[in-house]
């Protein structure tokens, strides 16, 4: 599936929720299920400190694809991270850099990514793109 197909899939999933409560329950669920962030990665250099919640991001190359791992101390933030990873992880730098993350707005979570939100998510998206730029340069 392409990045856009996955975004469509997420939008479809979220369209089933009539109530904001259900939407956030789902975010909590996928936030709780998000695993794979190793303790070794919980370093200062991987930390994006928001005023409200902390986010850690790690990235590594697997062939020509970037594998992202991330974690947060707040579950809703972690739920949104899980969605971002689902969309962007396992993609080439070119795919990542060419993507528009439209699903966030479509599923009504845009305010979580606005610059006025101090949860570290906007900085995380920027960091994910920066990794893509860096890995692309490295791959030549």
């Amino acid at each position: 599936m392409t990045i856009n197909e996955i975004q469509e899939e997420i939008i479809e999933e979220f369209s089933a929720f009539d109530e904001w409560m259900d939407k956030y329950s789902y975010l909590i669920e996928i936030g709780n299920d998000l695993e794979g962030f190793k303790d070794d990665w919980r370093l200062e250099q991987n930390l994006i400190e928001g005023c409200q919640s902390k986010v850690w991001v790690h990235a590594e190359l697997d062939g020509d694809k970037i594998i992202y791992s991330a974690d947060s101390d707040a579950i809703i933030t972690k739920g949104i991270i899980a969605l971002l990873i689902r969309v962007l992880s396992g993609r080439t730098p070119d795919e990542i850099l060419g993507s528009e993350l439209s699903f966030i707005e479509e599923i009504g979570l845009k305010d979580h990514l606005s610059p006025t939100r101090s949860n570290g998510l906007l900085a995380m998206v920027k960091q994910m793109r920066l990794y893509a730029v860096a890995f692309k340069a490295k791959m030549g």
């Binding site: 409560m21 956030y24 005023c51 409200q52 919640s53 101390d73 707040a74 579950i75 809703i76 933030t77």
Partner: peptide, 22 residues
């Protein structure tokens, strides 16, 4: 062990403004 940010975000959805954080 609910993070204050999570609680604040959800309360906001109910129209309830509290402050969370330090």
């Amino acid at each position: 062990d609910i993070h204050p940010f999570d609680m604040g975000t959800m309360l906001d959805k109910m129209g309830i403004a509290v402050r969370t954080g330090h």
